[in-house]
């Protein structure tokens, strides 16, 4: 039987993978993928802890909201990346360094 710890372990793994992708990837789409992984780690935690919610299904409902929001966020983020690409002709985060001044 799979216990709560297993879920948390998988979730932590997912989160770290996502964080690594966000910090280290040189392609904005992969950074976005990393963000999605982190969101999914959070969703997994919600569902896993939702088990202790009795019959209320609060965790699962919340997870559903999070998934929908994540989908919306992806759409927006992809649009942003498209525009960034149009402007800079690159989606490498290192090339987009206008924040420096």
């Amino acid at each position: 039987m799979i216990s709560l710890t297993h879920f948390l372990l998988v979730s932590a793994l997912l989160f770290s993978t996502g964080l690594y992708a966000v910090l280290a990837k040189k392609n904005a789409i992969l950074v976005l993928v990393g963000i999605e992984l982190m969101i999914n780690a959070a969703v997994l935690n919600l569902v896993a802890f939702g088990r202790y919610d009795g019959g209320l299904y609060g965790g699962q409902t919340f997870a559903l909201f999070a998934i929908v929001l994540a989908a919306a966020a992806v759409a927006v983020a992809l649009a942003i990346i498209l525009n960034v690409y149009k402007h800079y002709k690159s989606i490498n985060p290192d090339d987009i360094n206008d924040l420096k001044d």
Binding site: L19, V31, P93, D94, I96, N97, L99, K100, D101
Partner: peptide, 17 residues
């Protein structure tokens, strides 16, 4: 304080982390 950050967003994120 800027030092070598040079506007690279992932360095900022990393420092925040």
């Amino acid at each position: 304080l800027r030092g070598s950050r040079k506007g690279k967003i992932q360095y900022y994120l990393f420092s925040m982390f």
